[in-house]
Design a protein around this nucleic acid. Sequence first.
DNA 1: CCGCATCCTACAAGATACTG
DNA 2: CAGTATCTTGTAGGATGCGG
Lengths: 127, 127
Amino acid sequence: MTEKGICPIQTVFGILGGKWKHRILLELHPGPMRYNQLAASIGTISYKVLTQQLRELEEDGLVCRKVYPEVPPRVEYALTEMGESIFVVFREMRRWGLECDPVHEPVCSHCWKCRGREENASGSADA
Amino acid sequence: MTEKGICPIQTVFGILGGKWKHRILLELHPGPMRYNQLAASIGTISYKVLTQQLRELEEDGLVCRKVYPEVPPRVEYALTEMGESIFVVFREMRRWGLECDPVHEPVCSHCWKCRGREENASGSADA
DNA sequence: CCGCATCCTACAAGATACTG
DNA sequence: CAGTATCTTGTAGGATGCGG
């Protein structure tokens, strides 16, 4: 488990610390995903690291792992309520990031806010 | 400079990525500080890393470095407007972190919100 | 006092091969 | 399919010594 009992801000950095943690959460936002599906949509992550980071996110209570006793095996990962709740932080990060760097890619495929924009390219997605 | 032109959320993780970046910003919040003062108040950071992270924060426009041409030399670091503005993100992080881990240390000396509480130990500091 | 140069270590992450 | 085991690599960070 990520170290707690310290400054709450450091707690958050600890929980989201891994190189891929936030990316995984972002991917999971639209709904539960299977292990391989997750690996494929992230693209460049190794299985080892994906498993590892998922376990840590699970321990920290942000994602939950559901095993379906089937053949072939199926495992789905989903955001917990706590996992959903961190998106208030992401929302602020996104706002700040956009202000600070307005020339970011017009649509970043893995960002839960941008994702909606490809079809919905007219409205004001923010605020 | 931290990589930009990508997902705004990743931009933020990039900018705050270093082990000490957020800690430095937190220390700087009350007002400008000198190099050694900063090193002392953080305590366990090495000079090399402090310099390095300060340079990166400077390049990303979060802190500004002011050199006073005196003997002995004096250098002060301060938050820029952009540096101040990231505290909206910290604020959300702190809120989330407190909910997720309510048993964090009663007062964490380096947290800009907690710091005020030591004297002001009565009121509701949040919200 | 401030901070750069150099060297070194520890750990996160990648690659690959194998298993229930 | 969804992992583990093992090995290798890259890099952030630490320690120390010198210089403006």
